[in-house]
Design a protein around this nucleic acid. Structure first.
Length: 640
DNA sequence: GCAATGAGCGTC
DNA sequence: ACGCTCATTGCT
């Protein structure tokens, strides 16, 4: 066999993120194949590595070391995942070994020794009749069956059985003899889609890869995928790297959910990982959800995806009736208990009507701890810095400063209406479940959220109080979206998009308007995001959101990177020339105050140049043995 | 003039 | 964290 092994060495040092050549001892020659885990001596110490390739000669002028050990003959790193890890590392200004740590689960030797399972027969192609609600849906499924690399974004109708629809896409691909990979925000959604695929194609065609299962089970399922025995993989963000054989389709559900953002370096988002895979492996791509992100809108505008949406009348027929009531003009009810829970009359009436029809009522209350942001006192549009368009915040002294560039702005005027008045988007006092329960005596009260998430509820009457994302599955007669202004007023770039997404996830569980379904959102009806919910118009909202971000120079219209570190460390950085530097600003969510953030901003076409510069920056630091902490995140998820 | 020592650097 | 290079030091 070819005498030289090209190896990716598992080291945290950025300047060593390249292949190294080793000699293969004769006794390891037949198992030292591409993809195996290795032990080798690197700079004196014994380290882990990945065998990338066998080649006939090395360009290294010095003496080559020898591979110490092949950990196991299992070729865990497929060529496709190796290429993916390289591409993701380059894009995120990180190292391949960091990405491989995310991509490949820890070895479980006993599991590896178990006999493998046999791949099941191809499932039959499923009926795709339900996709007829979406004019371009059936054509997309045809493309999947024919093995074409179609790229689409799909806005599910309210009330849609979306797990069944996603299962149909996956089984269609499996029926054509290729693999499908579906990535969902959480375990609950994963289980639902897994169930839907099992119902269509049986239990042998699909595995769920989720962190919840123990290491042995997780590795067993992962190995079955790697060995080509399972064509359909469902899972949370780590599954985006699953080594599905003959990948024909990648699906991302609810791409605005921040659970899709990987918190470990180099912080790749599932959207990025799956997008890269679609390109590298020639697979179809489906980005789906009730709502639509600005990133997905951009992929439509650039022609990278096309949209699968229902026509207006079909959307209207499926949606509940949504009513917005402003906080200020809220008419409280006579009922003392309802008044104590600060329930507006309209909300109280909608809930009572649903309960009278024997249908459950959902109450969405935001999680605690949202920081107030500043908005125009006149038109309520977020207050933006005149210098860099960053978000304004109130300093302790009562003065106003930008959270991005730190410039204090004494003479603020709203860019939209010219008003000089500012208003804190106060976090509404969160109503307790007990207060709400007292307003509806005799109705079973259930709460879902935090550590106690209910998957579903028993049929019949119930008042369900849930935080966003924890709504139990049911057909509700009404939903009350309380403290909506608190969701909308969060001082982050994605506040509006995120609010609409969360409202839609809740509202989609409510019966259509024709069946009496009602949604009451306690927020000013003149706000664009509230109107988008009332009209059930996720596409229009995404278009407006992207237009606004383009205007202001925010992602995804531009490429950004965040450099977080101690102020001295940031001051010492030799920043690349030719890009806009914002800050230092506070690090979002950092309570210690010991760290600051620099933001680099470039036009999108210079995105890869920015990543390359940041790789060079980190390589220089690690070569110089710099010890001060520096966190580099390209496309930072949290932006104020 | 040259060996002995140690800091710095690259890492196959 | 090993081993190589290269500069410095101290001795002949």
């Amino acid at each position: 066999m070819l005498p030289i092994a090209r190896v990716c060495v598992d080291t945290p040092l950025a300047h060593l993120d390249r292949p190294f050549d080793y000699q293969v001892p004769a006794e390891l020659d037949d198992i030292a194949l591409p993809g195996v885990r290795l032990r080798l001596r690197f700079a004196g110490r014994l380290v882990d590595g990945w065998l990338l390739d066998r080649v006939d000669r090395s360009d290294h002028p010095g003496r080559l070391g020898w591979i110490e050990r092949v950990v196991s003959a299992e070729p865990v790193l497929s060529p496709q995942v190796a290429a993916l890890a390289r591409a993701v590392a380059d894009r995120c200004a990180g190292t391949m070994s960091d990405v491989l740590r995310l991509a490949i689960p820890p070895r479980h030797a006993r599991t590896e020794a178990e006999p493998g399972v046999v791949a099941p027969a191809l499932p039959p192609r499923p009926e795709a009749g339900s996709w007829r609600s979406y004019p371009r849906g059936p054509a997309f499924l045809d493309a999947l069956y024919q093995g074409r690399a179609a790229h689409a974004c799909w806005q599910a109708l309210p009330g849609e059985d979306w797990p069944a629809r996603l299962a149909e896409t996956a089984v269609t691909v499996a029926a054509a003899g290729r693999g499908a990979l579906l990535v969902l925000p959480d375990h609950r959604d994963t289980a639902r889609v897994h169930g839907a695929v099992v119902a269509l194609a049986g239990p042998d065609a699909v595995v769920a890869l989720a962190a919840e299962s123990g290491p042995a089970l997780r590795y067993r399922r992962w190995l079955a995928v790697r060995r080509g025995a399972v064509p359909i993989v469902i899972g949370t963000r780590a599954a985006a790297f699953a080594p599905v054989a003959e990948l024909g389709l990648v699906v991302l559900w609810d791409d605005g959910d921040d659970l899709h953002a990987e918190p470990r370096a180099p912080y790749p988002h599932s959207r990025l990982v799956l997008g890269q895979r679609a390109v590298l492996e020639g697979a179809a791509l489906l980005v789906a959800g009730y709502a639509r992100t600005a990133e997905t809108q951009l992929s439509l505008d650039t022609g990278w995806t096309h949209e699968i949406v229902a026509v207006r009348d079909v959307v209207r027929a499926a949606a509940p009736r949504v009513t917005a009531i402003g906080e200020d003009d809220t008419q409280l009810v006579r009922d003392a208990a309802a008044r104590a829970a600060r329930l507006p009359a309209v909300a109280f009436d909608a809930a009572r009507a649903a309960l009278a029809r024997d249908q459950p009522v959902l109450v969405q209350v935001p999680r605690r701890g949202y920081v107030p942001a500043l908005a125009c006192g006149q038109c309520r549009s977020p207050a933006r810095c005149r210098h860099c368009a960053g978000p304004l915040a109130l300093l302790a002294a009562g003065r106003v400063a930008c959270r991005w560039c730190g410039v204090t702005d004494a003479g603020y005027r709203c860019a939209a209406c010219g008003s000089a008045r500012l208003r804190a988007m106060a976090v509404g006092a969160s109503r307790t479940a007990e207060e709400l329960g007292r307003a509806f005596p005799g109705v079973p009260l259930r709460t879902s959220g935090g550590g106690q998430v209910l998957a579903d509820i028993p049929p019949g009457l119930a008042l369900v109080v849930a935080t966003p994302g924890a709504e139990p599955l049911a057909r509700y007669g009404a939903a009350l979206l309380l403290d909506a202004a608190a969701l909308l007023g969060r001082p982050t770039l994605r506040a509006a998009e995120e609010a609409l997404r969360r409202w839609m996830v809740a509202a989609a569980l409510v019966a259509p308007a024709a069946d009496g379904g009602r949604v009451i959102v306690v927020a000013d009806s003149s706000l664009a995001t509230v109107q988008a919910l009332v009209r059930w118009d996720p596409a229009g909202h995404a278009r407006a959101e992207l237009a606004a971000r383009t205007e202001l120079g925010f992602p995804p219209a531009v490429r950004m990177a965040a450099l977080d570190g101690a102020p001295e460390a940031l001051a010492d950085l030799e920043l690349p020339a030719g890009m806009e530097v914002l800050g230092p600003v506070p690090v979002p969510g950092d309570a210690s105050g010991q760290r600051e953030r620099l933001l680099l901003r470039v036009p999108r076409p210079q995105g890869s140049a920015l990543a390359a510069e940041l790789v060079a920056l980190q390589a220089g630091r690690s070569a110089r043995k710099a010890v001060e902490f520096l966190r580099v995140e390209v496309d930072p998820q949290e932006l104020s």
